[in-house]
Amino acid sequence: MMERDLPEGLSADRLPEHVAFIMDGNGRWAKKRVMNRVKGHEKGAGAVRQVVETCTKFGIPYLTLYAFSTENWQRPKKEVDALMGLLTRFLRNERKKLVKNGVRLTAIGEIDRLPEEVRHELDLTMEETRSNARLTLCLALSYGSRSEMVAMVQKIAEGVKEGRIDAASVDEEMVSQHLFTREIPDPDLVIRTSGEMRLSNFLLWQSAYSEIFFTDTLWPDFTESEFASILKDYQGRERRFGKVLQP
Rank of each mutant, 00 (worst) to 15 (best):
V153R: 13
T129Y: 06
T223P: 05
L141W: 01
I108G: 00
L86W: 00
D5E: 13
L10R: 07
A133L: 15
N132C: 12
G236W: 07
A67Y: 01
R49I: 09
L10Q: 09
K39R: 14
R146P: 12
Q74H: 14
R89A: 13
Y66D: 05
A133Y: 15
A45G: 11
R104W: 04
E238N: 13
Y209R: 09
T136C: 12
G159D: 02
L189F: 07
S131P: 09
S210Y: 03
P187N: 08
I156A: 03
M1Q: 14
R95F: 10
G236H: 05
T106F: 06
E71V: 10
V244N: 06
V34G: 15
P7W: 01
V170I: 07
R37P: 10
L199N: 03
L199F: 04
S69P: 12
E110M: 08
R134A: 09
V99L: 05
P220C: 11
K243H: 11
I156H: 00
R130D: 09
K31V: 13
R237Y: 06
E128A: 12
R192A: 11
S194F: 09
S194Q: 13
W29R: 11
Q154T: 10
I108A: 02
G46V: 11
E121T: 08
Q246G: 13
Y143M: 02
E173N: 12
F213Q: 14
M126G: 05
E110C: 08
T129R: 09
A20E: 03
R239A: 04
G27N: 09
R28V: 06
E211F: 03
T215N: 01
T136D: 03
W73N: 00
M35A: 11
L179Q: 09
I165T: 03
A167G: 07
L65G: 04
K96L: 14
G27E: 06
Y143D: 00
S11D: 15
N36R: 12
R239H: 10
S69L: 12
D221I: 06
L105V: 07
T56I: 12
M152S: 15
D171S: 09
Y66G: 00
E116H: 11
P115C: 03
G102T: 00
F222W: 01
I111H: 00
L87M: 15
A20N: 02
R14F: 15
D13T: 14
P220R: 04
K97Y: 15
E211I: 10
Q50I: 11
E172Y: 01
R4Q: 15
H18A: 09
M84H: 03
E110T: 04
V244R: 11
P76A: 02
S11H: 12
T136I: 10
T70H: 01
S147W: 15
L137Y: 00
P247K: 15
C55S: 08
